[in-house]
Design a protein around this nucleic acid. Structure first.
Lengths: 147, 147
DNA sequence: ATATCACTTTACGTTGACGTAAGGTACACA
DNA sequence: TGTGTACCTTACGTCAACGTAAAGTGATAT
């Protein structure tokens, strides 16, 4: 039950982003408004830091825009809420609808990643061939220099 | 020896970009200034279309900026020139230097793609697990509705 | 020949994702 | 209790990669 809190400086060091980025993500609603000290300084909890890590990966590795990321996060939050309220199940129909939406969203993401993996593999082969030809030229060039 | 030429409209339809994009890429030197009709309308040849295809893939699939892409294209052009002038070999030292640079550049790209592939795979697994859990909830929810 | 596109150049506008500066307050430490 | 950072809000600035509008010319089909 440590419920540790970290300052802006801590977070920026840990994640390699600027304070402005943290403020901006909060401003556009990507992360929730975090706790504050008596004087108004921000205090980030572990959950938010995890979320930020997730966001940065989606951005850097998958190339999603912040808008798209918000869509993904929303879908994930929906699932989490459903999972929490599993036994309260007020409206089963709505549960089903939300679950369908989430499954579709997640399935879309997985498919998109698969596509990306395929295309990346093709490009990898392509560049590897170029590199091989380049190395071949290097060898030939080296041989001709020996004479 | 057809040396066919295509209009702006042809190219934009084929590649799914706007005329402005073609103009812009020419403006910043990503593609060479193409041939024109007597009246000044652009005529693109196959080579330029191939280059554009390559550029768009680098942009979309690898997420490179136009600046980075120009660097890659330059390296590729260097290799091509070396390949063409193989037997004229004026300055062997310079050949070696250029070849080294190209090999390093290409190697860097391949490594970057490998990194990307790894990270993408990790994220794929991650989202797949989320999807599986979602599907599990769907099943459970469906079962409870049957009662 | 003429109407209708397609295309040209020039140049200002836009959007996302922050950068940066200003002016003031909070925190931590000696 | 001072003092040097760290942080706050507000707000204008920036940069890439185009979008878009204007005003005019070229291509083409009837």
């Amino acid at each position: 039950m440590a419920t540790d809190k970290w300052s802006v400086d801590d977070v920026t060091r840990q994640l390699g982003v600027t304070p402005r980025t943290l403020h901006y993500y909060e401003e556009v609603g990507l992360i929730p408004a975090c706790a504050r000290t008596a004087g108004g300084h921000r205090l980030y909890d572990q959950e938010t830091i995890d979320k930020l890590t997730h966001i940065l990966r989606l951005k850097e590795y998958l190339g999603y825009s912040l808008q798209e990321i918000r869509g993904i996060l929303d879908a994930e939050d929906d699932i989490e809420r459903l999972r929490m309220s599993y036994h309260s199940s007020e409206d089963q129909r709505e549960r089903q609808v939300i679950l369908d939406e989430c499954a579709q969203s997640l399935d879309g993401i997985v498919r998109a990643i698969d596509d990306k993996l395929d295309r990346l593999s093709v490009m990898r082969r392509n560049f590897q061939e170029r590199l091989d030809r380049c190395r071949q030229l290097q060898k030939e060039s080296g041989v001709s220099e020996q004479s």
